[in-house]
Design a protein around this nucleic acid. Sequence first.
DNA 1: ACCTGAACACCGTTCAAGT
DNA 2: ACCTGAACACCGTTCAAGT
Lengths: 214, 214
Amino acid sequence: MGARRRSRKPLTRERILDAAVTFADEHGVDALTMRKVAKALGAGVMSLYNHVAHKEEMLFGMVDRVVGEIEQPSFDDDWKQAMRDSAKAAHTMLMRHRWAAAEWSRQMPGPQRIRYMDAILRVLTDAGLQPHVVYHGYHAITMHIVGFALQQIGYEQVLGEDFEQMASAFLADLSDTHPHMAEHVRAHLDDEDHGDEFTFVLDLLLDGLERANT
Amino acid sequence: MGARRRSRKPLTRERILDAAVTFADEHGVDALTMRKVAKALGAGVMSLYNHVAHKEEMLFGMVDRVVGEIEQPSFDDDWKQAMRDSAKAAHTMLMRHRWAAAEWSRQMPGPQRIRYMDAILRVLTDAGLQPHVVYHGYHAITMHIVGFALQQIGYEQVLGEDFEQMASAFLADLSDTHPHMAEHVRAHLDDEDHGDEFTFVLDLLLDGLERANT
DNA sequence: ACCTGAACACCGTTCAAGT
DNA sequence: ACCTGAACACCGTTCAAGT
């Protein structure tokens, strides 16, 4: 132990994306730096540029790489169940790579995301939904997946701060001026039943799509 | 004309946020720099720090400022119509300030956003929806608003690039390997009926909430 | 073909000094 | 109380040089 250089293997786009994803998982995407990725690989900064065009393109590759971790939906199951499982898998991935949801919404689709989209569109099409319902459904579902992850991550981030005492003072203030908001925050705090909010809203969408098809 | 210093008025948080929003609207949030905001105001960089804590806090203020531009929903109309109008107003704002949707999902709610949330929660509550439906409904609706804006902005950004010729080459490739995806892209390109996708999915949600209430 | 250090043109922010 | 320039510790990326 104690060796400084990380590896003798040659640098690769693959290895760079790996290191970058690991770093972002651990330290957040804001702390992600070309210099730090290089260091994690025991290479000079400029060596990275032989395999990625620039930082933004590296981020593009990173998102696409983690999207590839989502397992494909089943084409045999009940379509709604297949969608629920696939959405859940996507959600789990976005919670594992907490930077990925924001980046997903910033970057263009790469090969893995195109493959993912194609699979979802196929499930909806095979379910017998009309083209315009498939079209809207695809957007509604992916929006829900990414949007929900973004919101949950933001919410959990707040919880990480000086929350316990802040919350009650905040609620006291709020109760006078914004009663509905205060009630909503309270509901968040006693996080009881809404444990499966993700599925609740997803089902709202799936049922809605089914009904819109008639 | 030709005066370099922008103004003799003293620096204010208000004026700083104004300048920053205007700059971000024009040049995008990536190009937004403390130095450039200062220059736009004819002030030294460090003067900004007398009124905002740091760049991140300035961005927080910027989002909250533009959220304040969304007009409050009506409490008299049919609740669904009120929600549709309010969602439309929010969407229009997010299209006017194209950086705002991404920032909305990154920043904590400020005073204006709390006021906005409270109003929406009130509409849903007054509609007679059960607490857990209000709770889920609020999230589903705001998720749709922000998520839709993010997706539309991303999509329009792609269109701005070397698209016309790229699209057909891209489609040819795609048709073989990802037929459903190719079909979806084609549907996007003939942007016919889906003109009101935003409302279509929103109505899916509103109807779903109503039904979930029984 | 791949790797790299030096250098450039930027950043956000600290600090100490001004009024 | 507000303003500011100089300085610090970083960035991403260009370039020219190495193998």
